[in-house]
Design a binder for these strands. Structure first.
Lengths: 140, 140
DNA sequence: TATTGTTATACTCTATAACTATA
DNA sequence: TATAGTTATAGAGTATAACAATA
């Protein structure tokens, strides 16, 4: 598409970070259309598959999504029969996978693992092991 | 905020890439409020400062923004007196900085250079030189 | 009083389709 | 016919304020 030398911002790490993230998210989003899931939806399926009695608030915290934005997200998953809400007490409710949700979550895992593998394969070998720790230093 | 061991996605490079980019963009956006600019607006100021006779289409291509989305972006810059449009021929028009736009662009450059410096300083020294080439391999 | 879940709302970024005018 | 600019519109993510019900 755009040649690097055409772009005075190409030498910027911040700019490269944004571009790489955008390209990566576009690729992943496209792969997830195979299971009719958005990235945020697949993230929830993967997250609650490994946990028990997870409330919407805990999911929101783990994925750094605002509590308020969990509502339409979970409603979409619930209306498609992928998750259901189970009361914990009068105030809290656990979000749990339905059998259909577990199958969908398993497919999401397959897709994201292949995606991750392909992503890493694109990184030149000598830089490969440095990327994750560098990114985590920027994020945490 | 969120502890890594709380998060089963923390081992994923794709996930870390998204999180790092989000954190970085949030930081930069906040710094740019000092000159009342969005990231996309500052990018345009920086881009056209170094070029002559740049059309909206060329800016869109260089920044990988859809042509159609340049319209409100440039309108905002124009209504604040930072850029103006100069006809090239009956069909094309150059987007050029006004004197006020040049001053704003200079401040944008100062902010983004300091930002870049701070960003790189956060990366552990042994990973530092690997980040940019790794990101560019993912993006290009 | 603090927390959980919710509604309403708005802003930003991104995206497609379709139109006008000019090269 | 292809390109430059534009309009209208929609989807997705993110954000704040405010409220009800419960711990």
């Amino acid at each position: 598409m755009s040649e690097p030398e055409d772009d005075p911002l190409a030498g910027s790490t911040g700019y490269a970070l944004r571009r790489a993230a955008m390209a990566m998210l576009g690729d992943l989003a496209e792969r997830l259309t195979a299971i009719d899931c958005r990235i945020s939806e697949a993230s929830v399926l993967l997250l609650i598959a490994e946990r028990k009695d997870v409330t919407a608030t805990r999911i929101a915290h783990a994925l750094e999504i605002k509590r308020t934005n969990m509502v339409p997200l979970l409603n979409r998953l619930e209306s498609r029969g992928l998750v259901k809400k189970v009361p914990i007490d009068g105030k809290s409710q656990a979000v749990v996978l339905t059998p259909k949700g577990r199958r969908r979550g398993a497919r999401a895992l397959t897709i994201t693992q292949q995606f991750e593998e392909d992503l890493i394969a694109r990184i030149p070998r000598e830089h490969r092991k440095h990327l994750l720790p560098a990114l985590r230093a920027l994020w945490l």
